[in-house]
């Protein structure tokens, strides 16, 4: 359980806003930490410190400008900063899972299919998906419907089911309980703990202190970048 699954080294991310006259925003600079199997790290820091940016960079969604993001994939460390798009796709498919705050899906696809499709092609995907949705208190009557018209909390739970069903060895969670009531929050806490005990390495942003305390082993402080004036 001590295997390093994810190591971040000296990561920097700068946004250049060409439409605002080329304003440069340095959001991350020198970020670095590592996560071992079965460990959960919570990113903390004030609003605007760059927690979401860091999490998105870890998923390869934001492209870092410097540093390394080493991910244990198929027994070797892959650097997502220099990986080709196809390598990133492969890493995401089998190694790296991500639960975003918002559900973005194709219209007309049912909730059950959305979750089952994320299972990586397993035969029993639909059974597992249904069980997971039940656990997250999505009634069976909603399983066959496309989630576009669901409430924010329901969409969030479908997103969670989609993120957890595959069982990626590394999981990135962006405010997984933000719009959930207490009962569902407890379900999510239990799911995170179970994942950890299976050896999943987790990096998350948890605004809810109770959730953070319940799942996080360590905090990583994301410091607001000091503008070099």
């Amino acid at each position: 359980m001590n295997t390093v699954m994810l190591r971040v080294e000296d990561l920097a991310k700068r946004f250049t806003l060409h439409l605002q006259g080329g304003v440069q925003l340095d959001v991350l600079n020198g970020a670095g930490f590592e996560v071992r199997a079965g460990e959960c790290i919570a990113l903390s820091g004030p609003s605007g410190a760059g927690k979401s940016t860091l999490l998105r960079a870890l998923y390869g969604n934001y492209r870092a400008d410097a540093g390394r993001i080493l991910v244990r994939h198929d027994g070797a460390m892959v650097d997502l900063v220099t990986a080709t798009p196809r390598q990133i796709v492969a890493v995401r498919r089998t190694t790296l899972g991500y639960v975003s705050q918002f559900l973005r899906v194709v219209p007309r696809v049912s909730a059950l299919d959305i979750v089952a499709d994320a299972a990586g092609g397993r035969a029993e995907a639909h059974t597992e998906a249904a069980a997971l949705l039940h656990r997250l208190n999505i009634p069976a009557s909603l399983h066959g419907l496309p989630p576009a018209t669901f409430s924010g909390g329901e969409q969030q739970r479908i997103n969670l089911a989609r993120g957890f069903i595959h069982g990626h060895p590394i999981l990135l969670l962006d405010e997984p309980t933000a719009s959930l009531d207490a009962a569902n929050r407890d379900v999510v806490i239990a799911m995170i703990r179970e994942a950890k005990s299976r050896g999943t390495a987790i990096v998350g942003i948890f605004h809810d202190a109770a959730v953070r305390d319940a799942v996080a082993d360590r905090l990583y402080q994301v410091a607001p970048y000091q503008q070099a004036a």
């Binding site: 390869g60 934001y62 492209r63 796709v89």
Partner: peptide, 8 residues
């Protein structure tokens, strides 16, 4: 990647 180019 599509999400890279469109999100960043």
């Amino acid at each position: 990647l599509t999400d890279q180019v469109l999100d960043d």
